[in-house]
């Protein structure tokens, strides 16, 4: 029960040593630590190189979502209005990011690599309605660019969800 003076000094020594160490604080808004390549942030929908959308509106992502935050309404492609290479395309594609739990099951489920979870994590808004991302928002090139760590070192050669075909 009786503390030794030596023990107190040991505690002070730990505190004292901290003065000679570099601070680990990261100046966050100015400096952003590169996220690891597997990081699952905001979703992104992709297009083929010829401009057509990869998504064919199969709703498999909506079926896989444990939080039920994806809504897909498909419509038929017509010769006059061709949006995706398949028979159908997603007329409405909405993700409610206030419900999303970022589990990444949608990108695992998508058989066409149309949806992926990218590095962006600064997605707070002032209104909950603004967190419902529509198809245009998801297809657009993200405004913010997040640094990503070396993919060769911190990911397997072919990521499970992104193997090209």
């Amino acid at each position: 029960m009786s503390p030794q003076p030596f023990d107190s000094l040991k505690g002070f020594a730990v505190t004292f040593r901290q003065m000679f160490k570099k601070p680990i604080t990261q100046q966050y808004p100015e400096y952003k630590r590169p996220v690891y390549p597997r990081f699952r942030g905001r979703h992104r929908l992709w297009r083929h190189e010829n401009g057509l959308e990869k998504c064919v509106g199969c709703s498999l992502c909506a079926a896989a979502c444990p939080a039920d935050c994806i809504r897909v309404v498909a419509a038929e492609n017509t010769p006059g209005n061709r949006v995706s290479p398949g028979e159908r395309y997603a007329r409405i594609y909405e993700i409610n990011l206030s419900r999303c739990i970022f589990c990444g099951y949608c990108e695992l489920a998508c058989p066409f690599d149309a949806i992926t979870l990218e590095a962006e994590f600064e997605i707070s808004e002032y209104s909950r309605d603004d967190l419902i991302y529509t198809k245009d928002m998801l297809l657009a090139e993200p405004v913010k660019r997040m640094p990503v760590a070396d993919r060769d070192l911190y990911d397997t050669p072919t990521p499970v969800w992104k193997a090209e075909s």
Binding site: Y36, R38, F39, F102, C103, Y105, L153, T156, P159, V160
Partner: peptide
Amino acid sequence: DLFELVGGVRMHTRYFQAGGLAEDIPQG
């Protein structure tokens, strides 16, 4: 950070799947 490296997110990684792991372990 280690969880983010291997599982994709910092806390709720769903990295364990029935039958094994969701992805291979990266070298880093």
